[in-house]
């Protein structure tokens, strides 16, 4: 990043997050690096277990301390390194400058507290708002996320809301303190298709209204095109391809990205069935030594199974980077083993 351009809001540099299973530490993220500008939306895409959510939780500092740790790397947010920040300092950031919404609206709200109370809570702990002021502000938020008759529903409990409405409440909660960064972890996956579109439209609208940067985590590439500026495809704890959204859809280069795109069912083509990527993401404790995707890759060469390639820019587009020694032969040695 040159001095002339604005410093990124969020910058991950070689982030390695490890989990302890069976007494040994295994890397769930193995050197994730990306930068996110203000107002930019980055889509993190990949299959379950590829490290998307772990990336978000690492940024939030919400990983369980008992069996997880950030072993290396930095998370620079608005000029501060979040790795090693005290829990109290992280608490002040969470819900205030960085917010997160989760996949499961049905279980992500506390069943014994009213919806209004839960929305007002962020305001209480970050803005010191109490009583009527907090209530008014929370009500306004519920209006903004388009909850019908918000004033009447303020004192209702989560079980009286539908899934889509609960996700709106989650969004209201996350946006209460006008965060600079929103982490949306598959926010529409658990919703009906029609509701998905509404929630996506709402997120896009609020994002531009609030001027937030957003990391949008999904395994649904169809959603990505409509909401993201840039895409990072993750596989087995590493980014395997990143590019501007149009560039990625026009020129998917990593074999995994290609395979992911093929899995989107198309209505304009006859096909015998749904395309699937054969095999599965290897478990943390049994990662192949070379390219993590090699065992499932059609383009696999002998060398792929021996060395892990680095994320290298394509000659045609420097901003389009791919981790594949077949498709994007790199000159550099792998940075993170």
């Amino acid at each position: 990043m040159s001095a002339a351009t604005e410093a990124p809001l969020l910058e991950l540099d070689g982030l390695v997050t490890e989990f302890r299973t069976g007494g040994a530490w295994h890397a769930a993220l193995r050197g994730v690096s990306f930068a996110l500008a203000r107002n930019e939306t980055l889509a993190l895409v990949g299959e379950s277990g590829c490290g998307k959510s772990v990336t978000a939780l690492s940024i939030m500092g919400l990983l369980p301390p008992a069996n997880s740790r950030i072993a290396a790397g930095r998370i620079r947010f608005a000029g501060r390194d979040l790795v090693g920040l005290s829990e109290e300092a992280m608490r002040k950031l969470r819900g205030n400058e960085i917010s997160m919404i989760f996949q499961e609206p049905m279980t992500s709200l506390n069943p014994v507290l009213t919806v209004g109370f839960q929305v007002a809570e962020s305001l209480r702990y970050h803005r010191g708002m109490e009583g009527q002021a907090a209530r008014r502000a929370a009500l306004e938020l519920l209006d903004q996320v388009k909850i019908p008759a918000a004033a009447q529903r303020f004192d209702d409990y989560p079980h009286q809301f539908s899934g889509g409405m609960r996700q709106r409440v989650m969004i209201a909660m996350a946006l209460a303190c006008r965060p600079k960064l929103l982490l949306a972890d598959e926010p529409t996956t658990a919703l009906d298709v029609t509701i998905q579109a509404q929630v996506l439209a709402l997120l896009a609208e609020l994002k531009s209204a609030y001027g937030m940067a957003m990391i949008f985590i999904t395994h649904n590439l169809g959603v990505v095109a409509s909401i993201a500026d840039r895409v990072a495809v993750m596989y087995a704890g590493a980014i395997v391809e990143t590019a501007a959204v149009d560039e990625l859809f026009a020129r998917p280069t990593h074999p995994y990205t290609e395979a992911l795109l093929r899995t989107i069912p198309r209505v304009d083509e006859d096909s015998a069935g749904l395309a699937a990527i054969p095999g599965q993401v290897p478990p943390l404790s049994a990662m192949p030594p070379g390219c993590r995707f090699a065992p499932r890759c059609a383009l696999r060469e002998a060398e792929c199974e021996a060395t892990d390639p680095a994320l290298a820019p394509l000659p045609a587009a420097a901003d389009h980077r791919v981790r594949c020694r077949v498709r994007a032969p790199a000159t550099a040695a792998p940075r993170h083993a």
Binding site: L62, R91, G95, M100, F102, E104, N110, E121, S122, A174
Partner: peptide, 17 residues
Amino acid sequence: GEDYIRTARAKGVPSRV
């Protein structure tokens, strides 16, 4: 271990609360 506890933490609610 419930999701809503994670939500509360993500909101920055103090752990005592």
